[in-house]
Design a protein around this nucleic acid. Sequence first.
DNA 1: CTACAACATTTGTACATACAAATATAAAAG
DNA 2: CTTTTATATTTGTATGTACAAATGTTGTAG
Lengths: 150, 150
Amino acid sequence: MKIEELLKTKDKMPESRKLVLNIIVTANYITEKIAEALKPFGVSNQQFNVLRILRGQKGKPANLSTIQERMVSKMSNTTRLVDKLVDKNYCERIVCPSNRRKVEIRITEGGLELLHKIDPVIDEVENDIAKKINEKEILSLNTNLNELRS
Amino acid sequence: MKIEELLKTKDKMPESRKLVLNIIVTANYITEKIAEALKPFGVSNQQFNVLRILRGQKGKPANLSTIQERMVSKMSNTTRLVDKLVDKNYCERIVCPSNRRKVEIRITEGGLELLHKIDPVIDEVENDIAKKINEKEILSLNTNLNELRS
DNA sequence: CTACAACATTTGTACATACAAATATAAAAG
DNA sequence: CTTTTATATTTGTATGTACAAATGTTGTAG
C-alpha cells in the first residue's frame, strides 16, 4: 500500500517526509512480522538479536559493551535483557577473572538449540519480504539506505 | 556506513537479511534524529505524531480509534499517550455527546503553537536525511518500500 | 423491556527503553 | 600508598509498548 494511503492523509507531503515515514512504517512492518514468528519460541526480537550475537562469537565470551555495539537497535539496558536470557538458560554470565569490572556472557547449549530451531523460520520471513522486489532493486535499496545514514 | 560494517559481523549474509536489517537500522537512525530534535520541546516522537494527526483534523475532533489507525507506529495504548498531551495542555478530551462510548480529542491553541515551532525543525531533519540521495533515488526508494509491504 | 452481543475506551500487568545516578573495579597521578 | 580519573556494569525512575481483561455504553433480538 502506498505510504500516503496508509497514513490516510489528504494533505500533500514533500517527498523527503514521505521517504522518512515510509522507512519507519516499513521497519515497523518487518519488526512485527519477526515478532510474530518469534512468538511461539517465547523470545523477543531483541533477545533473539542478542542470542545471534553471542553465537557469532563462536565460543569466545562477549561482554556487555560488545553486545551493545553490535545490536541492531541499541538499547540502554542490556543488563536486564541478558537477565531474561539467563533466566531462560539460553546464556550464562560470569564475572571476568582478568578484569572484574567486566562480565563474560556466553550462549549455552540450550540457546544454540533454540537458535537452530528459529533460524529457518526467520529466513522465511526475510525471504518472503525481500522477494517482493527483484535482485537489482534489493541491491540499490541497500546502497541508498546506506547513503541515508552517511 | 555499510550495513555489514555497522553490524560488525564477518559472516556473510544473504541479501534479504541485509535488506531487512538495513531498513530497521535506518529507521532507528531516523527515529533517533527526530527524538533529538524534539527533545528541547519536551515531547516524544509518538506524542508529536498524535499532535500532527489532531492538527490534520482541521477543527474536527478525533476519537481514539481514528488516532490509532493513523499513527505511524501503532501503539496499544493511545489512552495513556493522550493523557500526557492533556496534562501538558496540548489537547483536550471530552466525552462525545452523541455516543458516550467515544471521546472527542481536539488539539488546543497551545498544541498548535507548539507544532508551529517544531515544524521547521523537523523539516530540516527530514531534508538533511533525504538530500543524501537524488530525487530519482528517493522516488524509487519509496516505490520499492511500498512493494515490500504489499 | 430485558438479555445479549458489539463497540469504544480504560485499566492492569509485564516487559522494553531512555536517561541519569550509583556501584565497583582498575589504572594513572602525585 | 593514597587520591583521582576512567571504565564497565547495575540500579532507579519515568515513560513507552503489548496483550488481556474490565468497564461502560449502544444496538438488537426475542
